[in-house]
Design a protein around this nucleic acid. Structure first.
Lengths: 342, 342
DNA sequence: TGTTAGCACTCTGTCTCTTTGAGTGCTAAT
DNA sequence: ATTAGCACTCAAAGAGACAGAGTGCTAACA
């Protein structure tokens, strides 16, 4: 529906605006090498593009800036993927060089590096631990009415929770109980723990443990309220560097939302596999009206386990960020698969 | 050296400026109830106070604002301690109502509540874990060359570290080793672990474990590189609400420093017991030139274990924040002492 | 001798007016 | 279909005027 010339103009305007943050006028456009026709022609085309909703004006006699629809079209059709540069690659790879086994550290460092590389805010959702399997369970009594339960997964992840012991519970039976739990629950995925405890272990415990009723529910509850995937941020204050956020009132609500962290959880989890770009109001959140969010998923084997995301202004370097995320998510998938694939 | 009247004027100016953030003029001062003399008299006194360095002007014909020296004098001599209000008390106490045993959660929640109550940024340094005693040690092999070591302290704190096993190490000897370690190291403070391992446990291990040499050093290293006290923040973006930080360039460096988190570690650890106020350039850091930092320590029994701090503009509600911190640090000390005093 | 009224002076912030420059839209010529 | 030319628009920046809040100083006062 759009002519080649219109596409060219749209692309050049968007790319110019992404770098300059200034409305683009017909005269400055006509000076570009790619553009062989006059400023008057450009004006006519720009006028048409505006009528079609791809461009906007900030005031009647200003140059044009891309509309959300313009960005959308650009991202969907005009993007020229550009391979990351050598030094960018190197920086990305540096996440993997230390022989780190702990997932959380890899993920946290990823957020940091992505934010440094893009100058935007990086948000990384850690891998789901629900699918991980129990390697060992350990219960250490601390006082007559409290103990600490430690769960170790096959991926080297350790979680610990306080459990309140029922008043009538005999501390000496803890060891017995732990043995039973380990015998029965090792290699069970964390999500299935609760079920398994009630269906199989409860009966067993009843035979060996006094007062088993009260402890079973406590165990099942504490062991299975698995924490959701952890969320890591990098470059939380990078938004301050963007000229469009030079107004404190505007940036303040945004930074508050970023500080809350959890607000982004839903925004980022609900994406299917692959790379996705949400532009401005597509995010369904007035605070993010002037922001774009690019998400990429990563996996262990075939199973998608986490998400990388970059939050920037709508005037974002889409092609660079998309390439970066695509490259990095592949690498992360490879690494994780190698490390944790069973 | 200062007359009573000068003190009164200084105090009223500072308190007015703290609330209005506007330079205070002689006429508006003379209208206050506490002030019984004319604006001309006030002008003379203000002129003297300026000459003495307690006040400043923003330009030749502006009202006065407090200088750093003025704030210092105010904090040292003029402060009227004010007990926290009922609802503030209630909020502070709410940290303790949930029967939480885990230190980190208490500390994290403290930071959140302090920041909400003050509208400034709260920084809380978690208790040192070095002094805690080993309750149990556990080593779980994950692969032929890696295992995970878990240390549980008597305070319910759990730490875990990856350890790389020496290639020649026989996995089956782990259990034996763990038994020896537990028999010998329980109740040893974490700081003394390394020493004890080399002095007492190494010899024992040599008798029972093949290839003990390599594993001993790995153990000693990984077990004893205790992490420093964790630092928690609340209200990181609260600075944006202060009118003196309505300039992005100014706030940007400050927020970056806050985001780095570790920059505050030294600033906060180096304080001796009690409440301390550092005003503006007293912080020895150009980024904090317009900020004040109020710190309070908390203890377990007699031993000082952590720090609470509030970071705000130099134009800070000193008396309220000091009261709040003093009140809260006492409560925290009481709670911690009750929970963890041996 | 300390206090105060009065007044000239200073500086900021706000308003308005003007100018400049970058840009558009339209028309007519190519 | 394209383009040169021109009138028009708007924002940003600068200059001048003015009000308001403040000071410092002097002289009068108790």
């Amino acid at each position: 529906m759009l002519t080649d010339r219109q596409l060219l103009i749209l692309q050049v305007i968007i790319e110019d605006f992404i770098h300059s943050a200034q409305p683009v006028g017909s005269r400055s456009l006509s000076k570009k090498d790619e553009i062989t026709f006059s400023s008057a022609t450009i004006r006519n085309e720009m006028s048409d593009l505006e009528e079609l909703g791809f461009l906007e004006k900030t005031h009647t006699s200003s140059g044009r800036i891309p509309s959300e629809k313009g960005y959308r079209y650009y991202v969907d059709h005009l993007l020229s993927p550009q391979a990351p540069k050598k030094n960018e690659m190197k920086l990305l790879k540096s996440v993997f060089v230390e022989r780190i086994y702990e997932l959380e550290k890899i993920v946290q460092k990823s957020a940091k590096i992505l934010s440094e590389l893009t100058n935007y805010t990086a948000i990384v959702l850690g891998p789901k631990v629900n699918e991980h399997k129990l390697k060992k369970i350990q219960i250490v009594p601390l006082s007559p009415d409290a103990a600490i339960a430690i769960i170790i997964t096959d991926t080297g992840h350790v979680e610990n929770r306080m459990i309140s012991l029922p008043p009538s519970f005999d501390i000496n039976e803890i060891e017995k109980m732990v043995n039973i739990l380990n015998a029965r629950l090792v290699d069970v995925p964390l999500v299935d723990l609760k079920d398994k405890i009630y269906k199989e272990v409860a009966a067993l415990l009843s035979r060996h443990i006094h007062n088993y009723g009260s402890i079973v529910s406590v165990l099942a509850d504490t062991l299975t309220d698995t924490k959701p995937e952890k969320i890591f941020f990098g470059g939380k204050t990078n938004m301050l560097r963007q000229p469009e956020f030079h107004d404190i009132a505007k940036v303040s609500t945004l930074l508050s939302m970023i500080e809350q962290e959890q607000g982004f959880y839903d925004l980022i989890t609900q994406n299917p596999a692959g790379i996705h770009v949400k532009i401005g109001r597509e995010n369904q959140n007035t605070v993010l009206d002037d922001c774009s969010l690019i998400t990429a998923t990563y996996s262990i084997g075939q199973e998608q386990v986490g998400t990388l995301a970059i939050l920037g202004p709508t005037r974002m370097e889409y092609s660079r960020v998309i390439s970066l995320l695509s490259f990095f998510s592949k690498d992360l998938t490879t690494l994780m698969t190698k490390l944790y694939q069973k």
